[in-house]
Structures are given as structure tokens and as C-alpha cells.
Design a protein around this nucleic acid. Structure first.
Lengths: 111, 111
DNA sequence: CACACTCATCGTATATTTGCGATATAAGAT
DNA sequence: ATCTTATATCGCAAATATACGATGAGTGTG
């Protein structure tokens, strides 16, 4: 009865899956969008923009941070977040790699 | 107590999140890889390759199909799956769009 | 020092996901 | 018709995720 069998897969598969999981909620997509639109790092303005309670937003930020997609700094009484470009591009490249590999091979797939 | 507030976000945000969710498990990443490596559509060979029970693999295939990432056809007694290129590229493009928009704006982000 | 303000964390309720065995379904073989 | 083979689905158990209010921790202000 070993649940949660994720460790049975390769590290790369797990990394990609974790990246995808971090983006698997519309709130977190929205957070990334906001962090992009404003050229400065944002803190609790996210709470005003999002239809979620402050604690929930904080939790989503934590998950994005844990996944390495964003960086956070405490700036006085408030927190400042912004996108972690290196990680972001790394995973984007890996996605592209996966996709393009496939495309070359079977452009004319069966079904 | 309204849980599951996903409907409070834009359709595009939900679509991206759903796409990401479909890829948020290493087993499903692995399935996509296998479907890519073999130029033919595969059925239950996935069960041999993956460290999961047949019913679990079938469930993951169903999720990928529901998300629109793969197509499936019943071919006699067996099922044949392959990647749905249109959907796959559509979402890949949307990711790229999101990423590049950000990159232009704040290449030199604060934190 | 008290006070307000911003944010993180805890506890909790509920929903969803993951995994498996058992069973159903459907096609082909004997 | 029965049996095998391949796959999907059902039902259940355990783990995770989502959301919120309440509380705590840390800063800056009066």
C-alpha cells in the first residue's frame, strides 16, 4: 500500500511535474501575471486584486516560492515578491525540448 | 464556505491551469515521453513500462485525454493513444507568450 | 510603550487526487 | 459458446490540496 509513488520516476520527470503543479491553479497563474505586469515586486496588492482571503494568497505565494518560480524578500513590514527568471526559463526550455522532440518524430501521428 | 474558487478566475487562467494540472504528475509526463519515443500509438505497453497498476495507468490516460493532450482510439480489443498536437502546441505557445511578455518588461527585477 | 499595519502560520473543514483490487466490457481465438 | 486478452470503470482507502478565520510575529508610527 505505498501511496504517492512519485519517487518511482526519474528526477527530471518529477521536476517537470513539480513545475507544472506549481502552475496548476488559476490563482497562481494570476499571481504570476500580476507580478509580470507591475515592474516592481508586489506584496499584498495581490490580495486586493485576487478574489481570495489574505491567508490563502499567502499560501499560494509560499507554494510558488517552494517550487522556485518566484523569489521573496521581506522589505520592512511588507513582503516583496518577483519572478525567478532562471528557474522559469529553465523549465520553459525543458518543456520546449520535450515538445519539439516529439514534433520532429511523429508529425503525422496515427490517431 | 465556498471551496474550490477556481471559477472566479478568467477562462484563460483556468485553461492554462488545467493544462498544467494534466502535466503535474510524473506518471503523466512519463506517458507523454513514451508516446513520443515510439512512432506508433501505444496502448498497454505503458503498463509494462510504468511502475503502476493497469487501472492506475488507465486513469492517468483518461485524465490526459480529458485535458485534451492526447487522443485515443479503440483498435480492436486494444486502445491506441497518441499526442494531440494541436492542443499541445496551443498551450505551449501560451506559456511562451506569458514568459516572453514578462521577460521584456522586467529583465532586471528587484529581488 | 501601545497601536496599527502587513504578512506568515496554525488549525480546521472540505474537496480532489492517487492508487489498487475487483469487476465489467468488448473483441478475438479455440 | 467459452475462454483469453486488453482495457475501462467502480468502489474504496489514504494522501494532498484548497480555502478560511484566528492567531502570531515583526515593523513602523504616534
Amino acid at each position: 500500500m505505498a501511496f504517492h509513488k512519485k519517487e518511482a520516476f526519474t528526477q527530471k520527470e518529477q521536476d517537470l511535474a513539480n513545475f507544472a503543479k506549481a502552475m496548476s491553479h488559476p490563482a497562481r497563474i494570476a499571481i504570476l501575471k500580476v507580478l509580470a505586469q507591475r515592474n516592481e515586486c508586489i506584496c499584498g496588492e495581490l490580495v486586493d486584486v485576487l478574489p481570495l482571503a489574505q491567508s490563502t494568497v499567502s499560501q499560494h505565494l509560499k507554494e510558488l516560492k517552494n517550487a522556485g518560480l518566484i523569489n521573496g524578500e521581506t522589505d520592512g513590514p511588507r513582503s516583496c515578491y518577483c519572478i525567478n527568471w532562471k528557474a522559469f526559463e529553465k523549465f520553459n526550455n525543458e518543456f520546449n525540448l520535450l515538445f519539439s522532440n516529439l514534433k520532429i518524430k511523429n508529425e503525422k501521428a496515427c490517431c
